[in-house]
Each structure stands twice: as C-alpha cells, then as structure tokens.
Nucleic acid binder design. Structure first.
Lengths: 234, 234, 234, 234
DNA sequence: AATGAATGAGCCTTCATTCAT
DNA sequence: GATGAATGAAGGCTCATTCAT
C-alpha cells in the first residue's frame, strides 16, 4: 500500500467518522463522506469494499480511540477509593461524548453511542464483548461501593443507572440541550457533569448497602424496608 | 369519512408506529408500512398526504397515548410525598418504553424516545413544548426532594440523571439486554426498574440537600461522604 | 339522466375547460377539475368514461361556442367589401381568445388554440375538417382581396399570415404580454387588435395583385418584379 | 471531464432536445430521453442533476444555436435597406423552426418556440431578456420601414404581426400542414416562406406611414381604403 | 346513480455499487 | 492503483382509474 493510498484511506475514515456520528449509518451517504474526504465516490468501495466495511473500520478506530483514553482513566490504583474509581470511569466514558483536544466534537464517542443505543446488524461480536467487558468494570466499581450484601442483579441495575446518566448525553449534546438549554458546554461541562453523575451515584450507592426493597415497595404501603420508610416519610 | 376508511387509516398508523419505532423515520419505507397494513403503497399518500405527515400522525397518537397513561400516574395528590411522586413519574415514563396490554412492544414510547434522542426536522413545536413541560414536572418533583437550598442548575442536573436512567431503556430493550442479558422483561420488569430507579434517585436526592461540592470535589478529599451523611441524618 | 346529473356534468365541463385552457391536456389533472367543479374525483370517469373523453367534450363545446359566435360574424353580406369581411373574420377568430361577456377569460378559444398549435392524438376528424373549412372561408376572403391573378399557393400563404397574426395571441395573452407588456387588455384590446391585423393584412393583400416574386427575390438582386422593386427601393 | 463523458452528455442533450421539442417539458420523460440517448435513467441525474437542469441546458444550447445562425443573418450592413433587414430577420427566425443541415427537424427552434409560447416557471431571466432584445431589433427594423410618424404602439403591433406570422410555423410544421397540407417542406419552403412573410409585411408596413385609422375604422365606411392608397402614393 | 376508498403504473430522484480506463 | 463514468435497484410521490357500496 502506497503512502498516498494510506493518506486517502485515513481521510476517508476521518470523514466517515464525522458523517456517521452526525447522521447514523443508514442516512450517511458515501458521497458525503468521499466529498468531505476530498476523494472519489468510488474510493470507499476501492479502499474498503463497501459502505458497511467502512463503517466497521470507523467503529473499530473509534473504539480503539475511546478505549485508549478510557483505560488511562480507569486503571485502578490500589489507593483509590470506589468513589474515585467511579469518578474516573464516568469521566472516561463521558469525555468522548463531548470531545477532547484530538476529537473536538466527540465524534468517536457519538459513533459508539449510536451503535450502543441502536442495535445495528453490523454489530460485531468483538464490540459486543468489549461492551460487556466495560460493564464488568463498572460492576466492579459498583460492587466496591455497595458492599457484598447487595445481590448481583441490584449491582447491575445500579450500573445501568450510571450508564443511563452518561449515555443520556449522547448521541449528541443537542439531546440534553433540548431539555436543559442551560447545559454548560465544552470541557468545563464534562468535569461538571462527571462530578454530578459521580456525586449523584455515590450518594445513592452508599445507601444500597441493604437488600433491595421488594418490588412495588413504593406503592402506598409503608411497611417495607425501614430505611425506605424513613426516606419517604420525611 | 367512512368506516372502512378509518379502519385502513388506523391500520396504517399502527403499522407505521411499529416500523418507525423499529427503524426510525428515514430508514422506514412506506412500502414496508403499507404492506404491513395490508394496503397499497399509494394508501399512505391518500390518507396522509406524504410520509412525513404520517410520521406526524404517529408522533401525535403516540404522544396522546403516553400522556394519557402518564397523566393518570402523575396526578399528584396532596397526601403524596415526593418519593411517591417520583415513583409515579418514573413508572409513567418507563412503562411506555416496555409496553402494556395495549402496546405490547412499547412502540409508542420507542417512537417518542427516538424523537427525543435524535432531533428530527419534523419535530413539532407542540412536542418540543410538552417535553419541556415534562421537564418542569420533573424539576418540581426533584425540588420537593432536595429542598430549597439547592440551586436550580443542580436540580436540572438531577432531573437529567433521572431521565437518563429512564431513557437508557429506549429506544428498545435490546439496548439494556446487550449490557445485561439478564434484564427482566415484561410488566414485572417495569415495576422492578421503576422501583430501582426511584430508590436509586431518592437516595441520591436526599443527600443533595447541602450545597454542591465544588467541581472536582471528589478528587482527593475523603470527607465529603461524611458531610453528606450528616445531611442525610437530619 | 337526472337533473342533478346534468348539472354536475355541466360543471365538470366548465371546470375542465378552464383547467385545460390553463394547463393543457397532459398537465391538467382530474383532481383539479373535479375539485373546481365541486365534484368527486370519480365523477369524471363516471360521466365521461375517462379523461380524454372529457377533453373531447370540452373541445366539442368550445368549438360549438366559437363557431356560433364566429358564424354570426362571418356571414358575408353581398354589400360587404373584402376588407369588412376580413375585419369580421379576424374579430370572430380573435374574440374567443380574449373572452367576451359569456367567456370572460377566452377559455374556449384558448382550448382550441392549444389544440391547433399542438397536434394531439385525440384530434378528432370533425375538428380537423372544420378547421379546414375555416381555412377555406379565409381563403375566400383573401381571394376577394387579391383578385384572380394570384395563384392558390400565395392565397394560402396569405391566409396563414393572417392566422399567424391571430393565433399569436393564444394560448393566452401572456404570450404577447411578454414581448410587449404594453399590450392593451380587455375588449378594447380586441377591437384594436382586430383593427390592426385587418389593416396590416389588407394593406399587404392589396399589393398582392401581381404574381408572386420568385423565391429568393429579396436576396440582393433588384431586377425582380417591378412592383417589388418599387417597394424596396423606396 | 473525459471524452466519453462529454459524448454521453452530448447524446443526452441531443435526445432531450428532440423529446422536449416533441412533447414539452412536462410530458417528456427522462426514460424517453435516456433511452433515446442509449443511456441509463440515472444518467440524466448524473450529468445534469435533475430533469429541469437538463431542460435548462437544452434551452441554453438551442438558444446559442439559433443566435449563432441568427446573428449571422441579422448583422445589418450600412447599405442594406429595411426590407433586406426584415428578410434576414424573418429567415433567421424562421429557419430554426424548419431546420437546416445541422438541425434537420428544427428542434432548436421548436424548443425555444414552446418556451416563448407557453410561459414556463423555469424561464430564465437571460432568456426573457434576450427575447425582449430580439423584440427591440424587430422594432428597429419596423421603424425603419414605417418612418417616424408612426407611434410606438403601432410599431409594436406591427412587430407582433410579423412574429405571429413566423411563430405560426411552430412548434412544429404539423400546425401549418394541418391547415395547408400543400405547404412546401424543407429548406426550399423556408426561403419561400421567408419571402412571403417579408413581402406581406413590407407591403403592409410601407402603407403604415400615415397615422393609424381610429379604432373600428373598418366598420362601415368604405373610404378608408382610398385614404390608405393615398398614403401609399405619397 | 353516485361517491369515498383504494389501487397500480409510472414518474423523478437517490444511492451504493460496478465498470472501463 | 485509482478514478470518472455509468448503472440498476429502490425510494417517495402523483395520477388516472377502478372498486365497493
């Protein structure tokens, strides 16, 4: 593969990342992508075979990018508490959604978030397995915060509560901005959001030390878990 | 408008709701829809004018459906506490995402969630304003739980944390199922999830009565937890 | 045929006349027509069989209308001179293009002019033959003005010159208005135009008493027919 | 742009010119055009963007073609008389309606004549302005022939009489042929027609040196002819 | 008799893809 | 190797027509 070939290929991936992030797989067109990359319409098929293969490549590179940033933020030191771990995890997940110096618009995170939110037939098993791996990391962090008394299902639900808070800000910030126009933008916003989500979640998790109340525990009867009773009689 | 016309029209709306929920506006085709409705491709144009008008109708009916279910769950009684209000709100938002006896697959909620998550040019002002109205309701519930000392921005961030946990389960359950295959399905799951999200959020919110820690407040200091605990024990 | 049926049928013809005059056969739609007539889309097919049959009916009625007006203007009295005959013929042809008290927009004339200008497959033989009959009338008038020395072909060419001047103002006045925005409008305009065309043509015809110059007579050489020489040496 | 691309493009324009000339913009289909050009239906979109852009290109090329022929015929020499100018103008206008060695069927002229006769929304301002320019040229020729005593409105009416005679032979010869099946065809016919129209018009114009008779001047008085004759003999 | 409902053919257009160079 | 040219499938939409009542 020649040098120029590689350059064009990289430009195509970069352009495709943006277009897929903005419009999704189906709505993105290879004309948009090749035009943005300054390349020929046939270049996508030439370099990648077809549109879906290009998408796979974008997915792969975005995943690598995010994982690189992520792992550097989530390598748990022995000294860190669960709260700090969670703070690092949240920020590592959140930052790609908002972008950083090398991904100003959070394209990589948005591409992945789209894929997570909407199941695509192109979803590769490696992506699926790695997502599950991420879930395990989060499970571990949650477990540290809630202790061993809590059952696994509750841990997972807590993990989903945290993921929900994070993914709410994808596939693009416009989502949140519609609900809350005052949403702070830029890198400051990421730290603020990470702080908030961490605080919100830590506060909750620290009260999950007891067993889960039975289902429908909030429905009008007051004899459920005592802690709960205290809570909603306040 | 005759009887048969209304029947066909309703079938088209029903089919379109499913197809739009599954594939989104852009990817859905009127051929899919009309075939599913047992009608001709031209029937969409005949009954609604064009594809977008049909989509608007689907949006409208889904909104009405959800609001009807929702309002019956969110009418706040004088005796209810904030926690019960939140429980009702969460379940009312969550239920349409999972479906009920009249919407087994949660199509209405999924159609709306798609629209909320990805801004569509067809987004009508009435939908936008009503989304904002919902946000205000949630703000009120949060405010009841956190008290008056908390600033408005924090209230909104808490609202977004709650919405994030809810919308995580849209546009389809496959999202969560990918992360957590053990996710309970069906109506039981809704109650369980609503209980969890409510509990998770109430626990968190009740610790938010104090001022927000300064940004990066979790970075290195260990006494925040204690201050929070103190608050909680009030 | 019931009374109401006839009413609807007449309204359809009236509406169709307008729409066909404005848009032509192909571009006119039966929805436009039936809506303008306050009738059902199926009414056209019910009353006339298909779109083309409706068009035939419009053509027929427009032709009858124009012929009625025309014949009343072209019945040559023994006392009339050729110039007066021509004036009557021109006005009778021109007036339907501009409309009169019963056809304010000249719809009948415009429908026919469209048909004359563009050959339609639906062109019935009766229309063709009657057009030819009109041509014979005009031939007669021209012959009166030019005398017997002029050959038949020249007579026909003169007839076409006159018809061209008239049909120039069809299928709608907008044609002429584009060239000459100052074109007088309304009934006054018809008289003025008829006067002009008659004057223009009579002046020309009165000089056609001699034989036609040979072809290319105007190309640089001056030794053609003497009368001609006189003309262009002036 | 490669060689082959230009070939296909030219074939499309050629095919479109024929189809548009025969059927008009609305009735022409790109399937007809592309099939006639030996190309795919998508080729029109590829080379021109859409049907209307192709039409604009046809209009432009037809206009250029006609103008090239026209200008070579209408460059007025100092020595030429008004009659020769008119002869050149008429032939230059008429020839494209009948075709020449490079446009056997007069497609270019017929396309333009359609556009002139029926206002299309796609009518470009340049075409409109150039039509008006042509009208000015004709006005000048007429003015030379009638002298300065004649008012401007009469000059314009005379111009329209001449244009009417010319455009009578468009959009296709079938028009005239219907009236006068003996109409000579081919290039010989053009010269004959140009001679006739010129002669007819020059004869008329040379009698227009006096003031216009008052409106309805032909109604009932018999002495107008004499007055006209007097004018002519001046 | 008369009409609202429904249809299928055909339109223009878009698009990922393939071809020829 | 790389690209401009070309294509066929499919999309939304329009329309005259037919169907069922």
């Amino acid at each position: 593969m020649s040098h120029q070939s590689q350059v064009t290929r990289d430009q195509l991936v970069a352009a495709a990342t943006r277009v897929f992030a903005d419009h999704g797989f189906k709505s993105a067109t290879i004309r948009q992508i090749s035009h943005l990359a300054g390349a020929n319409v046939a270049s996508v098929n030439y370099h990648f075979g077809d549109k879906e293969a290009l998408y796979q490549e974008v997915l792969k590179q975005s995943f690598d990018y995010v994982m690189t940033r992520h792992s550097s933020g989530t390598e748990r030191t022995g000294a860190s508490t669960g709260a700090l771990d969670l703070r690092a995890f949240v920020e590592a997940m959140l930052r790609p959604l908002f972008g950083d110096e090398a991904d100003l618009d959070g394209l990589h995170g948005r591409v992945l978030a789209r894929e997570v939110i909407e199941p695509a037939p192109a979803m590769e098993s490696w992506l699926r397995s790695l997502i599950e791996k991420q879930a395990c990391v989060l499970d571990g962090i949650v477990r540290d915060l809630v202790g061993q008394q809590v059952d696994d299902q509750t841990v997972r639900l807590c993990g989903m509560s945290i993921m929900g808070q994070i993914l709410f800000y994808s596939p693009c910030r416009a989502v949140a901005a519609r609900f809350y126009p005052e949403l702070p933008a830029g890198a400051i916003g990421v730290e603020l959001l990470a702080d908030h989500i961490t605080r919100f979640s830590v506060e909750a998790l620290q009260r999950f030390t007891g067993p889960a109340p039975r289902a429908s525990g909030f429905e009008g009867r007051g004899d459920s878990e005592e802690a709960e009773t205290a809570v909603h009689l306040l």
